[in-house]
Amino acid sequence: MLQSIRAFFAQRQVLEVETPVLSNATITDPQLESFVSCFQNRDYYLQTSPEFYMKRLLAAGSGDIYQVARVFRNDELGRFHNPEFTMLEWYRLGFDHHRLMNEIEDLLKVILQLDTLVIHKVSYRDAFIKQMQIDPIEADIHTIQTCAEAHAIEIPQGMNLDDKDMWLDWLMVEKIAPGFAKDSFTFLYNYPASQAALARLDTDEPEVANRFELFWGELELGNGFYELTDAAEQRVRFEQENKARSLQGRKTLPIDESLLEALESGLPDCSGVAIGLDRLLMLMCKAESISQVIGFGEELQA
């Protein structure tokens, strides 16, 4: 797998890079929990993805780059989750997210050694309209609740009933993703702007963001962005995420000023994606649990 990935990028003249695993700032995403370590009395975080350092390289003029990195996420353990896993992340200058999705398709063909590959592609909005007859971007919270009730969707214990994004996330895992074609790949693209993360908003439809995810059946394999290059907008999003963290009674995290500086100095127009290689390996060898494809992975599962 690693050999075919390296050959693929070498042929396309994408440079392999390595960046630090430890950083004094980390992602503020309220849904991610970083491991914290300590060095000379300062907190250092184990990367949840190599994104920030790689963007600093891009801003410094690296050109197209990729990395195979070990990443760490606390509190994530299960059949499809392990607190450390291997991520393939790459960035392509001048690509929008659709062009990057095409390249992912090419890479999957090489890794899976297939001449043809069926990949479904559906927008976030259309997926909801098709399966639940609801427009997830336009719908207000009341419409969503009524729709969930009409589809007899169970309400999880602890659900924040007034949180639209939490509802959308729940409908996604309970109804939308399970409806994706089994045993094949699906790209879901143009997420609601409220779930933009580090993606830019669409120029024609600013209510959606140029973010996409790759699924195998209902299992998420990767996430990509037509990258946000606006430093001010990125700072606002980090601050909002920190606000959401403190509303949940959790610690706020230091914002990565070096990344924002890099964005200010100019991140080239680019798209990037991160793919979980362990999950890809799972489907290649039909593994039941991620621990079967990670060396000594069963030790944490006990």
Binding site: F80, P156, D165, V173, Q195, E220
Partner: peptide, 13 residues
């Protein structure tokens, strides 16, 4: 049995 489900980025259940 306990299974963690997460819609990629986003809220886990």
């Amino acid at each position: 049995e306990n299974e963690l489900v997460k819609p990629g980025k986003g809220q886990a259940f």
